[in-house]
Design a protein around this nucleic acid. Structure first.
Lengths: 135, 135
DNA sequence: ACTATTAATAATAATAATTATTAAAAAAGA
DNA sequence: TCTTTTTTAATAATTATTATTATTAATAGT
């Protein structure tokens, strides 16, 4: 029983890929609405769940309130901006931590790990500098 | 202007430390209620925010729906169970990733990173084995 | 000690994000 | 085509968290 590619599913997937960003459900909803004005937010949520379950997209449980979805399903890490809450890919090698190091930690069955660098993105740094000058 | 240690604050802090676990606000609320039955959940939330702001406890934005709070404020990583959603300390050295490696990633000002190993805890593995046998 | 000021609390309402329900529409199978 | 299943839109419900507000408690100034 494989995934049926419905119209709304197709558009959701296409818009996420097109964005090349890590969008939240509601950000994606805003984009998808332009092509399909009658779609509902719940449909976006449901299909993001289905698409990530099928491995077509990634679901990021990242810092911050909302989940974000990733068009890139290959293994990679992220960097999170504490000011604008946006997420970017981290293009360093996953050299630091190898599965074997982590295996058998306290009897856990390890399935993966999540590395998230925290910081302030260039855009938010600039925005802050401007504010400082005003003072 | 430093933190005033009120009665409820004291009890919240004490119960979190006593638990030696990474509790959610409502888990902690249940424990604190035993000593102070008239406390409200909002008070627990507010004071956890204040205590973590003051650096007396840690706030974990971990996988899973709810935030968890940590009695241990020293730098360390966590392992997350995808079945029971509980969090444990990861006692491996933070050897893999050093701040310098991560510095200047894409122009970000890096403030830290978060490493979260994902897996299934021993207790949940056992519980699953039992279920398998029943079949 | 008394009063004013400020801060913290409990109770509750509001918000935000997500998930569930349901009736209707679309698609697939017989 | 008729029947069954799946998906959808609309909406209600839920969950986690934060804000509001009136009351209470703590602290500071006199």
């Amino acid at each position: 029983m494989h995934l049926r590619m419905t119209n709304q599913r197709e558009i959701i997937l296409r818009e996420l890929k097109k964005s090349r960003q890590h969008l939240t459900a509601d950000e994606l909803y805003d984009r998808v609405k332009k092509d399909m004005p009658r779609i509902s937010l719940a449909t976006v949520y449901r299909n993001l769940e289905i698409l990530s379950g099928a491995g077509l997209i990634g679901k990021l449980e990242i810092s911050g309130r909302q989940k974000r979805f990733d068009y890139d399903v290959t293994e990679h890490d992220h960097i999170y901006c504490t000011v604008c809450h946006k997420v970017n890919n981290l293009d360093i090698e996953r050299q630091g931590l190898h599965a074997k190091e982590v295996k058998a930690v306290k009897g856990y069955r390890v399935t993966g790990y999540r590395l998230e660098v925290i910081g302030v993105c260039p855009a938010c740094q600039k925005r802050k500098e401007k504010k400082e000058k005003k003072k």
